[in-house]
Amino acid sequence: KTVKFDGLQFDFDNPEKALKFALEVAKQKGAEVHIHGDEIKIE
């Protein structure tokens, strides 16, 4: 899975870790997590 935000991109082999990371970043930024297939966007 790939996590994208602020023009940055982070690749994870483990989908659970990717989602956990995305949710943590979103919480800190006050943003929402959007999942599109293998891509997780924080907006």
Rank of each mutant, 00 (worst) to 15 (best):
I40A: 02
Q9F: 09
T2I: 12
F5M: 05
K29L: 15
I35P: 02
K27E: 12
K17E: 15
F5P: 03
D11V: 14
P15E: 13
D38T: 11
E24D: 09
V25Y: 09
E32H: 14
G30F: 05
L8W: 09
G37E: 08
Q9A: 11
A18W: 06
A18S: 01
D6I: 01
K20T: 09
V25Q: 06
F21V: 04
H34P: 02
K1G: 08
G30E: 07
L8V: 07
A18D: 04
V3K: 00
D13T: 09
K17F: 11
K29G: 07
D38R: 05
A31C: 14
K1H: 13
F12W: 03
K29M: 14
V3A: 04
K1P: 11
E16V: 09
T2S: 08
A31K: 06
F10C: 14
D6G: 09
E39D: 07
F10A: 02
A18N: 01
D6Y: 08
A22C: 07
K20L: 12
K41Y: 15
L23R: 05
L8G: 03
A26D: 04
H36N: 12
K17Y: 11
E24C: 15
V33M: 07
E39A: 06
E16R: 05
V3S: 01
E39T: 13
G7E: 05
K41D: 06
I35S: 05
F12V: 02
I40M: 04
A22P: 01
D6L: 07
V3C: 07
E43H: 11
L23T: 08
N14V: 06
E43T: 13
K29P: 06
I35L: 08
K27L: 12
V33W: 04
L19N: 02
A18I: 00
G30I: 02
L23K: 08
D13V: 08
D6Q: 08
V33N: 00
Q9M: 09
K1I: 15
F10G: 02
I40S: 02
N14K: 04
A31G: 13
K17D: 15
E16N: 06
Q9G: 04
D13C: 11
H34F: 13
K29Y: 15
F10T: 03
D38W: 08
I35M: 10
E39Q: 09
K17M: 14
K1Q: 10
F12H: 01
K27W: 09
N14F: 05
G37T: 05
D13Q: 08
G37I: 08
D38S: 11
A18V: 00
F21N: 05
V33D: 02
N14P: 00
A22L: 05
K1Y: 15
E16L: 09
K17R: 10
H36K: 09
K4P: 00
L23W: 10
L8Y: 09
F12R: 00
I42A: 03
A22V: 00
D38Q: 08
G37W: 07
Q9R: 10
A22Y: 03
E39K: 04
E39N: 06
K17I: 13
D6N: 11
P15K: 06
F5N: 01
L8S: 05
K27R: 11
I35C: 14
E16Y: 09
K17T: 14
G30L: 06
T2Y: 08
T2W: 06
K20W: 10
I40Y: 10
L8H: 07
G37H: 07
T2N: 05
D6F: 07
E16P: 00
H34A: 09
A22R: 00
V3N: 01
I35E: 05
E16W: 11
T2A: 04
K17N: 12
L8P: 00
H36S: 11
K17S: 14
F5E: 01
H36R: 10
P15C: 14
G7P: 03
E43C: 15
F12K: 01
H36E: 12
I42Q: 02
D13P: 07
K1R: 11
K4T: 13
K20H: 10
F5Y: 11
G30C: 14
E24W: 13
K41A: 11
A26G: 00
A18E: 04
G7Q: 05
I40E: 01
D6V: 01
T2L: 07
I42Y: 02
P15M: 14
N14M: 06
A22K: 00
K27F: 11
D6M: 10
V25S: 00
V3Y: 01
A31I: 07
V3F: 02
D38A: 08
D38F: 08
A22W: 04
D38C: 14
L23D: 05
Q9P: 02
K20S: 10
K41T: 15
D38L: 09
K27N: 09
Q28M: 12
D38N: 12
I40K: 03
Q28N: 09
K41Q: 11
L8K: 11
E32Y: 14
E39F: 12
K20D: 11
I42V: 11
K4H: 12
K20Q: 13
V25A: 05
P15G: 10
Q9D: 04
E43D: 10
N14T: 13
F12I: 03
K20R: 09
A26V: 01
K4R: 10
E43I: 14
K4I: 14
H36V: 13
A31V: 08
L8D: 04
E32I: 14
K4L: 13
V25K: 00
F10M: 05
K4A: 08
L19S: 01
E16F: 08
L23M: 12
K41W: 15
E43L: 13
K4M: 12
K29A: 12
K29S: 12
F5G: 03
G7M: 06
A26F: 02
I42D: 04
I40R: 00
K27T: 11
K20C: 15
G37C: 12
K17C: 12
H34L: 11
V25C: 13
Q9Y: 08
D13W: 05
F12L: 02
I40N: 01
D11C: 15
L19Q: 02
E16I: 10
L19A: 01
F5R: 00
K41G: 05
F21P: 04
K17A: 15
K4D: 04
F5D: 03
D6A: 08
H34M: 10
D11A: 10
A26N: 01
E32T: 14
Q28G: 07
E39C: 15
I40T: 03
K17L: 14
K20G: 07
D13E: 11
V25W: 09
V3P: 03
F10N: 01
V33A: 05
D13A: 08
N14I: 06
I42F: 04
E32K: 13
F21T: 04
K41H: 15
E43R: 10
K20V: 09
D11H: 15
D13I: 08
A31H: 09
I40F: 07
V3W: 00
H34I: 13
D13M: 08
E39G: 02
F12A: 02
I42W: 03
I40D: 02
F21A: 05
K41E: 11
I35Q: 06
A31F: 11
K1D: 03
H34T: 11
G37L: 07
V3R: 00
V3L: 02
L23H: 09
V25H: 00
G30Y: 05
Q28E: 12
L8Q: 10
T2K: 06
F21W: 12
E32R: 12
F5V: 10
F5T: 04
H36L: 12
I40Q: 00
L23V: 08
G37D: 08
E43N: 09
Q9W: 09
D11E: 13
H34K: 11
F12G: 02
P15F: 15
I35V: 11
A26K: 00
K41V: 15
G7A: 04
F21K: 00
A26S: 02
G30K: 06
K4Q: 07
A22Q: 02
E32A: 13
A18F: 01
I42S: 03
I35D: 04
N14E: 11
K41N: 12
H36W: 11
A31S: 07
I42M: 03
D11P: 08
E39S: 07
F10R: 00
A22E: 05
N14L: 06
N14Q: 07
K20A: 14
F12C: 09
H34E: 06
I40L: 06
A26C: 13
K41S: 13
P15D: 11
N14W: 03
P15V: 12
G37M: 07
L8I: 08
L19R: 00
F5C: 15
P15H: 12
E16K: 05
D11I: 14
E39W: 10
V33C: 13
E39V: 14
V3T: 01
G7K: 04
Q28I: 12
V33F: 05
K27S: 12
V25R: 00
E16H: 09
A26L: 03
E43W: 12
L8R: 06
V33H: 03
A31Q: 09
F10P: 01
A26Q: 00
K1W: 15
K1E: 03
G30R: 05
E32M: 14
V25D: 04
D38G: 10
E24G: 01
F10L: 06
K1C: 15
V25T: 05
A18T: 00
G37N: 07
G7W: 05
A31T: 06
F12P: 02
A31Y: 14
K17P: 03
